[in-house]
Amino acid sequence: MFVRSAGERDLAAVRTLLVETWHTTYDAIYGHERVTEITNDWHSIASLRSRLRRPRSEFLVADDGATIGGMAYAAESTDPSLAVLHQLYVLPRFQRQGIGTTLLHEIEDSFPEARRVRLEVEEANAPALRFYAAHGFRCSGEPALCGGETFAIPALVLEKPLD
């Protein structure tokens, strides 16, 4: 797989990737119906399109020419020394092949002014916690609630310094 910037033509495949990955990861935690509700909101084509168009952000896909196997989206915060990783997902059948690591490194390189990267991860998502810990992320504060009052998903805030 090679990593490239996402385009409008990728959004349907990215949505499919996100829906599949979310159901595989979160159905056991939240149930199928709630995961469907979340993905219909957070991973709609309109939501993805708005991320694609956001200034000072990077929206990447891992592509083998036939399948988009992974995606990552990050944006500069109001503080240019902080990049926020909002999404990094790899299709289950492509996990543990280095795609997530490649996407993460590309995101880190996309923000030359950033001195650190922050993300939120669902505290029950043990594989993601292991992945981020292996890449130098550590808890950086109080737990957060993703999705505001609508979804209120408990998340740990992780941060990594950049060299």
Rank of each mutant, 00 (worst) to 15 (best):
A133S: 15
V61Q: 08
G136P: 09
A126T: 13
T24P: 00
A13Y: 08
V121M: 01
I107R: 14
L119V: 11
T36H: 06
T67Q: 08
E113H: 12
R54D: 03
A66P: 00
R96H: 14
P112R: 09
R130H: 14
V157L: 07
F94A: 13
E159F: 00
F137A: 08
I153R: 04
S57Q: 10
E33C: 00
G31Y: 00
R34S: 01
V3Y: 06
R96I: 04
Y26E: 04
L60N: 01
S47L: 00
P161E: 12
T101N: 13
D163F: 05
E123R: 09
G69M: 07
S50N: 07
T25P: 04
L91I: 15
H32A: 12
A133R: 13
Y26Q: 03
S47G: 02
A134M: 08
T102S: 13
I29L: 06
A83Q: 10
R115N: 02
A83S: 11
T150P: 03
T16Y: 13
F59Y: 12
L158F: 06
K160V: 05
I99S: 11
D109L: 15
F131K: 12
G148M: 08
Q95F: 08
Y132G: 09
E120S: 12
A128D: 05
R115I: 00
T24M: 01
D109Y: 09
R116L: 06
R53F: 00
V90F: 03
N125P: 03
L104I: 09
A152R: 13
D109M: 14
R15C: 10
S77I: 09
M71V: 04
A74Y: 08
D163K: 09
R93Y: 14
L52I: 04
R118G: 10
L11T: 06
A12E: 15
E58C: 07
V157G: 00
I153W: 03
F2R: 12
L88F: 10
V14F: 05
W42M: 11
Y89G: 04
S47H: 02
F59N: 10
D63A: 03
S5E: 07
E58M: 04
Y73H: 14
R4S: 07
V121I: 02
S57W: 03
Y30I: 01
S5I: 00
G69W: 08
A75L: 06
W22N: 02
T102R: 14
G70I: 02
T36Y: 03
D79A: 01
E20R: 11
V121L: 02
A46I: 01
V84K: 10
T24F: 05
V84T: 10
E20P: 03
P55T: 06
A133I: 05
H135S: 13
V157I: 05
E37S: 01
A28F: 02
S50M: 09
